[in-house]
Design a protein around this nucleic acid. Sequence first.
DNA 1: TAAATAGTGTCTGTAAGACACTATTAT
DNA 2: ATAATAGTGTCTTACAGACACTATTTA
Lengths: 257, 257
Amino acid sequence: MNQNDALLMSEAEFLRRYNPSEYARPSTSVDAAIFTVKDGSLHVLLIKRSEHPYKDSWTLVGGYIDMESDIDLMATAKRKLEEKTGVKTPYLEQLVTIGNKSRDPRGWSVTTVYFALIPGAGVELKAGLGASEIRWAKVSNGKVKEKLGFDHALLLSDSFERLRSKVLYTSLPVYLMPKTFSLRDLQKMYELILNQPLDPKSFRRRILNAEILAATATLRHNGTRPAQLYRLKKTAPTHFFMRSIEGPIRSENRASS
Amino acid sequence: MNQNDALLMSEAEFLRRYNPSEYARPSTSVDAAIFTVKDGSLHVLLIKRSEHPYKDSWTLVGGYIDMESDIDLMATAKRKLEEKTGVKTPYLEQLVTIGNKSRDPRGWSVTTVYFALIPGAGVELKAGLGASEIRWAKVSNGKVKEKLGFDHALLLSDSFERLRSKVLYTSLPVYLMPKTFSLRDLQKMYELILNQPLDPKSFRRRILNAEILAATATLRHNGTRPAQLYRLKKTAPTHFFMRSIEGPIRSENRASS
DNA sequence: TAAATAGTGTCTGTAAGACACTATTAT
DNA sequence: ATAATAGTGTCTTACAGACACTATTTA
């Protein structure tokens, strides 16, 4: 047995003796700000908790890692999303991880926050375990009317800010659209999130130059001039524009000092 | 006792009975990719582990949350940074959180990765507990020569990619500079990270328009034409430019689907 | 003087902003 | 024809790229 074998053996021996409950660990969870657009407004999915703590408070969708079946954190987020909405392939992005002593009355806890964008059509909500109710809540300026449990009001406003800031330089809103849509529809989605009107000519130029949309063979007729419908190209990744839309000053991601 | 009191009481009762070790939890840690520039190259801080697992392997600086003294995750990251380098106020940004079954042989583990930028001058390294050695390792193309333990090669390359991608549209490199520096020095820092030469005129125009630097009263004389020295304005936040430097195609932050 | 590094003048290119304009439908 | 919504023409503006040029030092 050479020295390398000895080292491996002793690591194996170490692992054999390792007791995971020897040291206290913070709790870890995953929360998701799941956005959609309904009736011309941005909404986020909330559940009403049926268990302590914060029983009967509204919160974002979330839960604990299933150490048996979840292979990684995103799997936990996807599982929660699918349990509640049936949606399997959303735009899902990790936003931030918040961990501190005070956010959960049970002690030190860490939560990784994802944000998801899903089209509004055809989603059927299921409250599921731990929730007595589930519903879409209208988001205005990063806030909902409901008083949220834990620090979820903060998680929501962070998620919304990130969404808004990324909309200035990416094609993210396409993930909120139905399968086919007109450029005007997409523009309205941008305007809704940015809370700011955009020039139609500049908007169309920007989106069409990105080459992420394909025109469909059909026009949509609803009473006035028909609109060309588009769909997202199958292979199109999220587009990052070289220049931002000029909007409110961006100051996301500011560092500590 | 009204209904609200009753609800509060029963939550208090719930918390009194709550047993944190009732459910298995993943382990949670914080790792930091601490970058500096030495001898004209980008370096990252590594330690050599003195304990299992991955005993005698090199890894990024990291460790467990101290549930008594750390008030939040960033406090853990700052504490680790200060223990190793003595630096107290770096640029410190949360990058991503990785959690899965396989990254640690002891089982499901979650780590939150920070990246830090510190000036090279006057830093004295201390290996400290759990480490037999500590040193700056040269980073080339997101990699170090050392074979890294756990999934730290991946954490490092992610950190480096994020750094590179943010350098295209922010003023981040100022945090790697000493107190005063010339614009040419700063340009060299950008070029080093981007691995791409920049036009001096365009570079100066870009940086000066951002109004984040103040000229000092002194010039630096070293043998040729003296250079105007600048310092970072005290109040200057990280600057986000409206346009990217044209570089390799940006594709950070791509979502799952 | 030459070598070396700091810094400028100025033209071009590109994509966004502004805004008036045309186009196509239903009634 | 009018209202309503879709979509265009085209001028301006802002800022990055390119690159030749000038400036200030030491030896």
